[in-house]
Amino acid sequence: MSELLLLFDLLLTVTLLVLATAAIMSREPRRAVILYIAFGLLLALVWARLRAPDLALAEAAIGAGLSGALMLAAARRATAAKRQHASQPGTKGETS
């Protein structure tokens, strides 16, 4: 049983590291945020495994859920602003 748990912990740690790297390396903001949300949910599992249920709750609700929603909204606005910027080259000189 303990070997199975060790395997689970190892898998969790490796997945976390891979997700973190993928989130940082991603060029597209939206994809980076989605990877970050997955990272946060797995991190909540890590806190639960470390017997810190309070932190696990906070991580899942605030770290993954609300920060994720906030960053998705920010990514949406950033993409919209960039698209507007690209479609109106005339305004470029005024804004920058």
Binding site: A58, I62, G65
Partner: peptide, 13 residues
């Protein structure tokens, strides 16, 4: 386990 921040996060959600 619980408290103001977790409860606030649910309300925010």
């Amino acid at each position: 386990p619980g408290g103001a921040f977790q409860a606030g996060a649910l309300l925010g959600a």
